[in-house]
Amino acid sequence: MVALSTVPRARARLSLPALTLRNAYTLVAALIILVVLAWAIVPGLFTSHSPYAGITREQFQAPSGAHLFGTDQFGRDVFARVVYGTRSAVLTALVAVGIGLFAGSLIGLVAGFFGRAVDAVLGRLIDVLLAIPAFLLAVIVVVSLGFATVNAAIAVGASSVAVFARLIRSEALRVKGLPFVESAYLVGGNKLQVLFGHVLPNTYRSVLALGVLQFGIAIINISALAFLGYGSPPPAADWGLQVANGKDFLYRYPWLVYAPGIVMVLTVLALNQLNKSISKGR
């Protein structure tokens, strides 16, 4: 038999400069996310201050070597509160995205894969959910569940279910028409095996990209809920709560708002960049 040559790789080099620039952004974004994750996992490594115990004689200190982001009205170290706040931000956002992703995937997958009446019913459900602004939906859910961090996560998750469902439904529709799905039936697969063995894995990349994007949106929405008082109560170290608390002192002690705010913005921008990189296939 004739030996086969491998795929020509020449195209990989086609647009090298553009790739590099994008990679640079992606690299910075990945670094930011790594730092944020490290803060969430081992906050103690990054600061020796307690996020809760204030030193009352050290109120409202401006950012300095001793207090990187300054101190608040209780004399608490703002940097420590930002670092310790990362865990709740990341965890609640994860829970939110998890809920949205799981419920959304299930609805979207079932709707797209089984089609017909199932799709008609679930499709209308998705439409109804999409018609309600996500943040409003989150507020409605959190008000009916009661104000707590977990409920805020559930609320934000619930508000993103439709977004995931819509994407995965269309992905499932696309994938189920591909020849390899038919081939899977031909070699003896049943519906469930095909659904979870072939359709689901082939929707994962776009879902992953959306998940990363939604993760950033979840961080914003959860913080916004906390800012409005629907999330963590004081004295929790929570980004949204910190901004809400700091806004009363914005004129005189701007770092109380800017420090957590900038961290939040950078995190979300980094997540957006990662989403771009993933959906463009790196």
Binding site: L178, P179, F180, S183, A184, V187, G188, G189, Q193, H198, P201, N202, Y204
Partner: peptide, 25 residues
Amino acid sequence: YQNPFTSLDPTYKVARLIEEPLVRY
């Protein structure tokens, strides 16, 4: 199939692609 670019699940490794029918049966 006519088009090998769409008839093989891109997320599968070759071993699993060839094994799949055996597993199913």
